[in-house]
Design a protein around this nucleic acid. Structure first.
Lengths: 130, 130
DNA sequence: TTGCATTAGATGCGCCTGCATGTATTGTTG
DNA sequence: CAACAATACATGCAGGCGCATCTAATGCAA
């Protein structure tokens, strides 16, 4: 892969990331009181199929630092979308569980999220002659 | 493009962005006292071929808000890498010029930047049998 | 020209992030 | 077991970002 291709690939990532994350942040927070990262965490927990997750596990899934994820989970807990529980096996650890309200909020926001993604990654061609 | 493809494409962008921006931030700031966005601005000014740029023009090029870009340019100016000048034609406006020191800093950081990009977008295959 | 909408850029503010560090617990080594 | 390294998560802190707003200058209409 040539240097020009590499640079081009990176700039494409930058552009798509900027447009998409900005739109997601706006749409999700306006219509569902969720930030992009909040949605991302809920989504991974819904899709993961497990009932409980470790904090670091969540952080890895959404590409956040452990500290950012710890605070993010605290925000979600405060909003009633997840809850934290002590891990009996390793009492340093914490389990994070998604609540029914968390599942509901994720389900409600899903269409908004997907609509933004499609507008960036699969834009519908404009019909000619408007 | 199916919904699954769209979601996959977005997650790929998220992953690449996280890994690359994190690495760039670390490497550039450690070796060249530059943040990723600072480098990006210098690069666009070097490549653009113009001698002066409007603030909004720079903001668009690097996908930053006007306010973020205004502060970023202030940091670069403080570091002596660009300078700001009044725009005679429209006295609301400001011209941003890259200095020789700015060009030098960009040139010095270029190899580091490209090395990070290659490590993510064109990783060299590990020779077998280590 | 006067008055008002618009535009360029700077700045106050609050939020989120990563890094460094703190606290508690677990593992390991002598 | 005692001492110490390692691990899991929380938290203090500083920095960057976007949004809203402010100021100054411009453009346009009456």
């Amino acid at each position: 892969m040539s240097e020009r291709s590499v640079v081009h690939a990176w700039r494409d990532v930058l552009a798509k990331h900027a447009v998409t994350s900005c739109a997601l942040e706006r749409e999700l927070s306006e219509h569902h009181q969720l930030g992009m990262s909040e949605f991302e965490v809920l989504e991974r927990m819904v899709e993961g199929g497990q009932d409980k997750y470790r904090v670091q596990e969540v952080a890895d899934a959404v590409h956040l630092s452990q500290s950012a994820c710890s605070r993010l989970i605290a925000r979600l807990e405060k909003a009633g979308l997840v809850c934290r529980g002590m891990c009996e096996a390793d009492r340093r650890g914490v389990f994070v569980l998604i609540t029914d309200e968390g599942r509901a909020r994720h389900a409600a926001a899903l269409a908004t999220h997907r609509a933004v993604l499609e507008s960036v990654f699969a834009p519908r061609p404009q019909p000619a002659g408007i």
